[in-house]
């Protein structure tokens, strides 16, 4: 508004004052808005960096992580069967996974027969992907216990322990088996002694459980159970005694 055009009446002056005040308020608000926006952006960026660093540390695994003995494939698998078996069956399982339990109930005997007859070797590649589904990180604790058993008593004891774990599988959503129970089952599978008990209670192979799970995920593992026959994924609906036998003989000929 030009300076020479003064408002003439009181009403107009008041209106003018209100207009100026409003404009000032608007300017102040705008300035505050910009400052607030910058502050919020800085806060979000800071949170991004902090969370990234923290989560990265939580998921990183030490290169010197203890690897359980009696394993193959750089510690990622427990192998049973002849060294020269013509076909290799890989089995990815999580001890809390109900479908894995069903798979074991249905096919454990078949796998054992294939191993006994020398038709195939089985590489168990257990992973811990269902920690969220129990209140006490059962997937990790069970997998660690299985590693302790393999280390202390060998692949056959590992297979026996796995069978016991699946038979006693807790329901998803609640607590898993207690450490005491895991130690008792390990003893039943042939792994005894204070080293076994301590290893189970102290999560001796926790870093290893993270590493093998991460490696399996990177290798394209989408869920459990996943069965691969000579590297070829077996569809779950074919994961029956007949389906596995057919896949093994097909692989042996192929």
């Amino acid at each position: 508004m030009p300076a020479d055009r003064r408002p003439r009446t009181a009403a107009k002056r008041a209106a003018e004052a209100r207009r100026v005040a409003l404009a000032q308020t608007a300017a102040t608000r705008r300035r505050r808005g910009i400052l607030g926006g910058i502050a919020a952006a800085v806060a979000v960026l800071t949170a991004l960096v902090v969370v990234f660093v923290v989560q990265d540390r939580r998921t990183s695994t030490s290169d010197r992580a203890a690897v359980p003995g009696n394993t193959v494939a750089d510690g990622a698998a427990v192998r049973v069967g002849d060294a020269g078996a013509p076909v290799v069956i890989e089995v990815y399982e999580d001890y809390l996974c109900p479908v894995c339990r069903a798979f074991e109930e249905r096919n454990a005997a078949t796998l054992a027969e294939l191993v006994d007859s020398g038709a195939a070797a089985v590489e168990y590649r257990p992973v811990a992907i269902l920690d969220r589904a129990s209140t006490d990180r059962y997937s990790t604790r069970a997998l660690n216990a299985a590693a302790v058993v393999a280390d202390a008593a060998g692949p056959e004891a590992f297979v026996a322990f796995s069978g016991l774990l699946f038979a006693a599988q807790p329901e998803e959503g609640g607590p898993g088996l207690s450490d005491d129970r895991l130690v008792a089952l390990a003893g039943q599978a042939g792994a005894t002694g204070t080293r076994v008990a301590d290893g189970i209670r102290d999560l001796a192979y926790e870093d290893w459980t993270r590493r093998v799970t991460d490696e399996a995920s990177k290798a394209g593992l989408q869920g459990t159970p996943t069965i691969r026959v000579d590297g070829e994924e077996l569809p779950l609906r074919e994961a029956t005694p007949e389906g596995i036998a057919a896949a093994v003989s097909a692989a042996a000929q192929g």
């Binding site: 989560q55 992907i129 920690d131 969220r132 799970t213 991460d214 995920s217 989408q222």
Partner: peptide, 14 residues
């Protein structure tokens, strides 16, 4: 998604 970062990584990778 915060409590289990490893699961978040697998979910994205999947």
């Amino acid at each position: 998604k915060i409590p289990d970062p490893a699961a978040a990584v697998r979910a994205v990778r999947a």
